[in-house]
Amino acid sequence: MSIFQIRQKTSGAILWTGSADDEHTALDAMAREAGYPDYSALPDTLRAAGFETAKLDLIS
Rank of each mutant, 00 (worst) to 15 (best):
A41G: 09
S11M: 12
D57F: 05
A49P: 01
R47A: 11
S40V: 12
A54P: 00
H24M: 05
T53E: 02
T10K: 11
D44S: 14
L42N: 13
A26L: 01
D21H: 02
G12S: 12
L42H: 09
I3L: 07
K55E: 15
K9Q: 11
G35S: 10
F51G: 02
A13K: 13
L15E: 04
L46P: 00
F4T: 03
E52T: 09
A20S: 08
D21T: 06
S60T: 09
L42G: 12
L42M: 15
M30I: 06
H24C: 01
P43I: 14
L15K: 12
Q5D: 04
D38Y: 04
S11F: 04
D44Q: 15
D44T: 13
I3G: 00
I59W: 02
T53K: 03
H24F: 02
K55L: 13
T45W: 05
S11P: 07
E23P: 06
I3C: 02
A41D: 15
R7A: 07
A49M: 12
L15G: 03
D22T: 03
M30L: 14
F4M: 05
D21I: 05
I14V: 15
A13M: 09
S40A: 15
L15Q: 11
K9A: 10
S11V: 09
M1A: 08
Q5P: 00
Y36R: 13
T53P: 01
H24R: 06
R47G: 04
T17H: 01
G35N: 11
S11A: 13
A26V: 01
T10P: 01
H24I: 06
L15C: 12
T45Q: 10
D28H: 11
A29S: 06
Q8N: 14
A29M: 06
R7L: 12
R32C: 11
A48S: 13
I6T: 03
G35M: 10
D21P: 00
E33D: 12
L42V: 11
R32F: 05
M1V: 06
A13N: 10
I14Q: 08
D22C: 10
K9C: 08
R7F: 08
D38A: 09
E33P: 00
W16C: 07
K55I: 07
K9F: 01
I14L: 15
E33K: 10
Q5R: 15
T10W: 00
S19E: 12
